[in-house]
Amino acid sequence: MATNTLIGSLVRIRELSILLVTIACAGYFALTSTGFTSLDNGHTIAQYIAPWAIVGAGEAMLLICGEIDLSAGFVFTLAPFVLVLLNNNGLPLFVALLATVVICALIGTVNGLIRTLFNLPSFITTLGMAFLLQGLSLIISNGSPVPAPADTWVRTTFGGARWSELTWALVIIAVMQIVLSASRFGIYTQATGSNPVGAAESGIRTSRVKVVNFAVTSALAGFGGILEGMRVGSFDPTNGGFNTMFFGVAAAVIGGTALLGGSGTVVGALLGALLLGIVYDGFNLTGVNANAFNVVLGVAILVAMFLNTYLSVLRRRASAVRGRT
C-alpha cells in the first residue's frame, strides 16, 4: 500500500506535527483577520520570532544534554551594553561585537563550570547568574536606554537591514542543526542527556559537552541581543530578560525537545518560535482585548501543545506498525 507507507514515513518525521499545527494557525488567522498575509505582517512576525529562535536554538541544545539556562535572557539584555562599553573605549564596532560575543561565551562557560565542577543544579546556578546579569545591565546602562551606534556597515549587517535579524536566525538554526545531527559533538550532546552514566562509561567527557553547550547558548543569546538592539536602534536595559528566555525555552519544547533531555532538534525550536510568533501576531491583528491577551495566548499554546502531542502519539503508533511488518 503505497499511500500507507507515504503517510507512515511522513508521520515519522518528528517536526511534522508541529509544522501542521503552525500551518493550521496561520490558516485560521489568514481567514479571520485582515492583513495577516501581507509582506509587512510577515516582517512583523519575523521580528517576533528571530530572538526567540536564536535563544531557542541554544536552549534546545542545552535541554537535549539535560540542562537549562535561565540566564540566557539577561545575557541578551547585557550584551549590547558590553558592546557600547568596548566601542566607547576605542575598539572598532566590529571588533567590539566579536569581543562581546566572546565575553558572552565566557559567561556561559562560568555557568557550565559551576554546574559541572560543584555539581549544582543548572536551574539554581543560572537563576543566580540571571539576577547577577540583570543587575550588571542596570549598573552599566545606568538604568536608561542608549542609542545604538551610528549607521555603518556593521549596523546594517547585524540587525539594521530589513530582514537581517531573521536571516541571522535562520543561519544560526541551520548551523546548530548541522552540529546536532551531523557531528560527533551532536551525538555526545544527545548521549549526555539521555544516559549521563552510560555516556561517561563509554568515555564521553560529559562535563565538557555541557560546558560547551552552556557557552554556545550564552554566545547566541548575546549575539541575539545585539541584533535586536541594532534593529530597534536603541539598547534598552528592560529588553530581553526572563520573557525572552522563556519564549526561547517554550519554542524549543513546543518544537519537540524533551525537557528532561536526550532528544530534540534545533529546527523544532524554529518551528516552535514560528508558532508562538504567528499566535502572538494573529491575536494582535484580530484585536484581542489587551487584558485578555495573555489568557488567550496561554490557552492557544496549551491547545497547540495538545495537538502536537496527539500527533506524536499517532506518529509513534505508525512507526511501531512499520517496525513490526
Binding site: I187, Q190, A191, G193, S194, N195, V197, G198, A199, E201, S202, G262, S263
Partner: peptide
Amino acid sequence: QDLAMIDDL
C-alpha cells in the same frame, strides 16, 4: 551490568 546504552539513539 547497566550496559551503558543510550536509549534515545
